[in-house]
Amino acid sequence: MPELNGLIHSIEEGMKRIGYLEEAVRGHINTTRYQNDLLKDSDNWNQICSSLDTINDTLYSQLDYLNAEYPSSSGLKYIFTYGLLQALFIQQDAIRHLLEAFGIQFELTDRLKEIRLLRNASIGHPTKNKTKGATYYNYISRMSLSKTGFTLMRSFDQGSNEFIDIEMYSIINDQLKDIESSYKLLSEKLTEADRMHRDKHKDNLLSDIFHSSMSYTISKVAEAIHSPHSGNTTFALSMLNSIQKTYQKFEASLLERGDLSEYTKYDLDEYNHALRKLKDYLNGNELGLTDSDANIYHFYIREKNNHFEKIAKEVDDNYRK
């Protein structure tokens, strides 16, 4: 019993560590700059998401196997056994496909290969199981079925028999160790890629794009709205051109880093629309626009500028972490 309790504790701790690693991987792929790139290949993106979900689902099945009351009926005992062994098999495929999607070669360890072979013999192809040139006929001993395992009888070579005691808790524990190692390898690769990306851009501050005179520049546009003589209008148009250039550079910088989210892109498109409207108004091309309308557009570009400067600072702070 102490040995069994130790295995259960090891399994539970392993699942927690895998959970932290999964969270790190999900955090990486859901970061705008990486998600934008990954979404370019929808098949690969779906392979990543399906693999992550499947690994998580199979962890739940293993945890519930440990915590659930083992059934007393023979039929449900088989269902429990079949289900767990199949979950282990699926989990191996899922971690392989997850690493594959990130260009990492996954090699089955000897223990994972053994678990795979035991699954095939017990529930995959028990009635005619071909392995390394030999054909086996397999039987699960019903009387041996328990939550901790069972005995598998294998017949081969004209009546030769062998008996294998399969210990379910040890299998779960050993597989989780290899799953954790593979997850850790992936997490480390993604962390290093993130570090290199941050190092490349961390000294090119987005907040520096918004020069200290932005408030002054925007205020000069308001003067032309309130006092629309030629000098004010000409100067205000030059100020609007300066603001447009600032925002073109801001959008280009976000795009270059991969940090231009669809939400920020939408906001920038609206901001540029407001700038164009004001330029048309000052040029006399927007005949339907009143002074009140122009003031509203001006209020929008002034207040929204604060919003974008805040985004720039948040991105800069993120890169410096």
Rank of each mutant, 00 (worst) to 15 (best):
V221M: 02
S144C: 00
K200L: 13
I18V: 12
F250H: 03
D93Y: 09
Q35D: 07
A294W: 04
L205Q: 08
S212V: 12
Y70D: 12
E270Y: 07
A222V: 09
L84V: 03
S72T: 13
E13S: 11
P228Y: 08
S212M: 06
E107R: 08
T246K: 11
S242K: 12
L112F: 04
Y34L: 05
T81R: 06
T32K: 04
H201G: 00
H273T: 12
A274C: 08
Y271F: 13
T148G: 15
E114L: 10
I18N: 10
M1N: 10
N241A: 10
L84W: 00
S160Q: 14
I209H: 05
L88E: 07
R96D: 09
T127V: 07
G6L: 08
I179D: 06
I296A: 07
K245I: 09
I166H: 02
S187P: 05
L176F: 04
D57L: 11
S292P: 01
H298S: 02
S219Y: 14
M143G: 08
L206W: 11
G284D: 07
K277G: 06
K77N: 02
T109R: 06
L99A: 00
A121T: 01
D203V: 07
D165E: 13
G159M: 02
P228Q: 05
S50I: 14
L118Q: 10
R195W: 04
D280N: 09
Y60I: 14
L255A: 15
A68C: 13
I140F: 00
S170N: 14
R302L: 06
I123C: 08
K279E: 09
T151I: 11
E180V: 01
Y34I: 05
H197P: 01
L98F: 03
N138G: 02
H229N: 15
G133C: 05
F102M: 01
I79A: 14
D157A: 13
S144V: 02
G19S: 15
L275E: 00
L38K: 01
L108F: 10
